[in-house]
Amino acid sequence: MTDYFLIEPSNDYKEEYIGMIQEWEGTGEMMVPFVLKYDYSDFDMLIQELMDLRDIPRVDYTKVNSSTFWLVMRNKKVIGVVNIRHKLNEGLLNRGGHIGYGIRPNERRKGFAIEILKQALIKAKGLGIDKVLITCDKDNIGSVKTITNNGGVLDSEEVINGIEVQRYWIETDNNG
């Protein structure tokens, strides 16, 4: 039995989630995926926002529905966050892709990124996504290794806003 697993956001993990966010904020790093930037001061509202992002149909195509999961340990420590977009718009086809994930700073380089992506690919398959696009900055060697270790195949590279971005595809049938 594994010691860590993906869960939907829950008040049961409030203190651990807030601790992770505060740890991240202390580093001054950009927080990825984007849902980590949501205000957590009203935790019930945060949970509702994440559920709305998943459930309320988008009438315009500037935003897309997505599901958020937290990677947690049996002791309830929140290790990381993954967001899976159900469909892509034109912008996300270039940069963003289906899946964004992040591991809290003090838990990096322990294999958790590979695991969160592996489990996210299973969730994506359950959402009916057969082929997942994941993008990352070319110089983000950790993400490149995480993606390729999960079967990612480099599709293209492009300079976007001065940053070299790589696009990888992963077939969800090959995972889980």
Rank of each mutant, 00 (worst) to 15 (best):
Y61A: 06
R85P: 02
R74Q: 12
G102K: 07
G80D: 08
V78C: 08
D44S: 13
H86R: 12
Q22C: 11
D52R: 06
G80Q: 05
K14F: 00
Y101T: 14
T68Y: 00
G19W: 02
F34G: 12
M45V: 04
E90I: 11
G97I: 06
W24Q: 09
F34Y: 14
I47M: 01
E16K: 14
H98D: 01
F69I: 07
N83I: 04
E29V: 14
D52G: 03
I79G: 05
V82S: 06
V59L: 01
L53N: 14
Y17E: 00
I79W: 04
K37V: 15
N75L: 05
E90C: 13
S41K: 12
R54L: 04
Q22D: 14
P57H: 08
L36Y: 07
Y38S: 04
E90H: 10
D55Y: 02
D55Q: 03
V81D: 01
W24K: 03
M30S: 08
G100E: 00
E23C: 07
H86V: 11
K63N: 15
G19D: 02
R58K: 15
S41Q: 11
M31S: 11
V72N: 03
K77P: 10
V32L: 13
D55L: 03
V81F: 03
D55W: 05
M73G: 07
V64W: 10
L46F: 05
F43W: 08
M45F: 07
V59D: 01
G28D: 10
D42N: 15
Y17C: 00
K87L: 02
K63D: 15
W24I: 13
K77F: 09
G26L: 04
S66V: 03
I56Q: 02
M73A: 13
E16D: 15
E15L: 06
D39Y: 08
K63A: 14
S41A: 06
M31H: 11
I18R: 05
L46K: 02
L93T: 10
R85N: 07
R54E: 09
V64T: 15
I79M: 04
T68V: 11
L53A: 14
Y101G: 07
S66G: 04
L88G: 07
D52S: 08
H98M: 03
L36M: 12
D42F: 10
V35W: 00
K76I: 03
K63Q: 15
S67I: 11
L46C: 00
E29R: 14
R95A: 14
G96M: 05
K76T: 09
K63R: 15
D39R: 08
